[in-house]
Amino acid sequence: MRKYQLYLIEDEFASHYFGRERIFFHLFKENRQAVGELKQITDKQISYITKPLPVLRIHQLLHKKLEKSNSLKAENGLYTIELNNRTSMADLSVKENFIVIEAEGGYEAETAFFEVLRKCEASFLAIDLENDKYGWLKPIKERKFV
């Protein structure tokens, strides 16, 4: 099973650290393992680099997708997608500061969620701490100065 946490990174930090996402990944990983004072410090750092989720907008986009698709179900704030005769499944729940997506099977179901969220905000960072994977949902384009 794959489990992603999606954080909305402040635009200033997202553009500055483009290409160096592993720094964010290590901060979130360190925060998960930290205790005591280190936990408090990393919590503050995460709070500083992330911005609040547009929860209402996210739910609206998911419900809009729900109307168009019979493979997406919503129940008690948990969204579930089952595709390809249940060979690709994913659940999405919106927390206060991040989104959790749990997926198994093929990648089609989680990709469907990623596509919806990508339309909502430009600086979502997905982190899979269990499998040491991370990346932007919508890669930031670098500006080229001539």
Rank of each mutant, 00 (worst) to 15 (best):
Y134Q: 05
A103K: 03
P54T: 08
A103T: 04
I49V: 12
E104M: 08
D91L: 08
L72V: 07
R57W: 10
K144V: 13
N70Y: 11
S71H: 13
R143H: 10
I127W: 10
L72I: 14
T87N: 08
T50Q: 10
F124K: 01
P52M: 14
T87W: 07
A74E: 15
A74S: 13
E67D: 11
E108L: 08
D128F: 06
F113I: 05
K133W: 10
R143Y: 14
D43S: 14
E115C: 02
W136N: 00
D43M: 04
E115M: 04
V94W: 05
W136L: 02
V55N: 08
R86T: 08
L83V: 01
E142P: 04
A90Y: 07
T111P: 00
K68A: 15
N131H: 14
E104S: 07
D91C: 05
D128L: 02
K141E: 15
T87C: 03
S69C: 04
E130P: 00
L61Q: 13
K44A: 15
T111I: 06
S123K: 05
S69A: 11
M89G: 00
E115G: 01
N97F: 13
G77Q: 08
P52E: 15
P54M: 08
S69L: 06
L137S: 00
V100G: 00
P54F: 13
I49Y: 09
E110F: 06
V100Q: 05
Y107N: 07
N76Q: 13
E75Q: 11
K138M: 10
I140A: 02
L66H: 09
L53T: 06
L92C: 00
D91P: 00
E104F: 08
K95A: 03
V146L: 12
S71I: 04
G77R: 05
R86P: 00
L92S: 01
D128C: 03
E102N: 06
N131V: 02
S69E: 14
E96L: 09
V55R: 12
I127P: 00
K144L: 15
A109Y: 09
K144T: 10
E102Y: 04
L53F: 12
R57Q: 15
K95S: 01
S123N: 12
L53M: 09
D132K: 06
P139Y: 09
D43E: 15
C120F: 03
Y79A: 01
I99R: 02
N131K: 10
Y48P: 00
A109K: 03
V55G: 04
N131D: 11
N84M: 12
E110G: 02
H63T: 02
K44L: 15
F113H: 05
F113R: 03
E108Q: 09
E96V: 07
A122S: 09
E82K: 11
P52W: 13
P54S: 12
R57Y: 11
N85E: 15
F145G: 07
K64E: 15
A122E: 13
S93T: 09
P54W: 12
L92W: 03
A90D: 06
K73M: 14
R57N: 13
L56N: 11
S71V: 08
E130S: 09
I127V: 10
E82V: 05
S88N: 04
